[in-house]
């Protein structure tokens, strides 16, 4: 039953990716500049050279044929060769290198978001209206209001340049060094999003705490710990998980800025470079990878919701 659900969602996801890749292909075709210009670079555009490049990269084929050729390749897990970003390197290989770094950055940020956002949000929810709550809520508002790229520059200057606690540039080798290199970008990425998560968790907690079942549990003399964990937390978890899905997707877009500011060779910088240089196969590949991660994130969130809430397993829709 759950397997059928997953299959159905994956099927829908593949359709979505297909549409996405086609739309991006169209956009690239419509945008000014051609791959040819990028390929030529500073070389003189002699007819022989143009012809050979056109023939090699099938640049003269009709639009749909080009898309079809790309799609056929993808189906055989061949994403083609990069045109200009890393000339002739297989796109699959570039993507997996770049994606690894982005995933590390995202994972690091996610850990920070969860560690900061959920406990603080819960605390604020439980101590509603008290000083703790007001301090946390004010902090969350400030965090949400700080644009990630501005924050990134401030962090870079204060902790990288002035205090020299963290490296300013590069990715480091080995685990410890990688962590230290990714700390500032991860913090920059996590700040806004953990502010959002604090608010979501607080609201979910407030809703849960005001429910009749909490009152009824207290009236039956259940231990405060049980009421907090089994009643308040479990019920608050559902809306938090849902918002977490949105937060993760937002994190993906933010990485574009963050990688740029910290010059990290992740998928974000790759995508930017590929778009500027009209490197169609790389753009297509990166879009595919990013799109797939959004779809998988949402699927994971839904599965988590199914696991958490028995009601969603039997949820009823009015199909009038």
């Amino acid at each position: 039953m759950v397997a059928a659900f997953v299959l159905r969602r994956l099927g829908a996801g593949i359709l979505l990716l297909l549409t996405l890749s086609f739309l991006v292909f169209c956009l690239l075709a419509l945008s000014p500049g051609t791959p040819l210009q990028a390929l030529l670079g500073t070389r003189p555009a002699s007819p022989e050279l143009v012809d050979s490049l056109n023939a090699r990269y099938h640049l003269n084929d009709p639009f749909l044929v080009q898309y079809g050729r790309w799609l056929a390749g993808v189906c055989a897990l061949d994403f083609g060769q990069s045109i200009s970003v890393q000339s002739d390197a297989p796109v699959g290989q570039i993507l997996s290198e770049r994606m690894a770094l982005t995933l590390q950055l995202g994972g690091y940020a996610l850990v920070l978001i969860l560690l900061v956002g959920i406990p603080l949000g819960m605390l604020a929810g439980i101590r509603r209206g008290r000083r703790t709550d007001r301090a946390i809520s004010a902090g969350a508002t400030v965090a949400i209001s700080a644009p990630a790229f501005v924050l990134a520059i401030v962090l870079l200057y204060v902790f990288g340049v002035a205090l020299k606690w963290f490296p300013v540039y590069g990715t480091g080798t080995g685990f410890a060094e990688r962590v230290s290199h990714l700390t500032l970008p991860a913090v920059a990425l996590a700040t806004v999003l953990s502010g959002i998560l604090v608010r979501q968790t607080r609201a979910a907690m407030l809703t849960a705490m005001s429910q009749d079942y909490i009152t009824f549990a207290r009236l039956r003399g259940l231990s405060p710990g049980r009421v907090l964990v089994r009643y308040a937390l479990r019920n608050a978890a559902l809306p938090v998980v849902t918002s977490l899905g949105l937060i993760l997707v937002a994190a993906l877009t933010s990485t574009l800025f963050i990688e740029q500011v910290f010059s990290l060779p992740g998928i974000g910088t790759l995508l930017l470079a590929a778009v500027t240089n009209n490197d169609v196969p790389v753009v297509q590949g990166a879009v595919l990878v990013l799109g797939a991660s959004v779809i998988l994130t949402n699927l994971a969130v839904d599965l988590l919701g199914l696991a958490l809430d028995p009601r969603t397993r039997f949820a009823v829709k009015d199909g009038a």
């Binding site: 079942y213 009236l219 089994r230 479990r234 019920n235 028995p310």
Partner: peptide
């Protein structure tokens, strides 16, 4: 005293039980 000496039943049975817990868990914990 709660539960063992004084107990209370609320008005709305649709909101008084934890939606994520089975009837057995409700009874056992009580």
């Amino acid at each position: 005293l709660r539960g063992s000496r004084i107990a209370m039943v609320l008005q709305d049975p649709f909101t008084a039980l934890n939606p994520l817990q089975t009837v057995r868990e409700h009874l056992r914990e009580s």
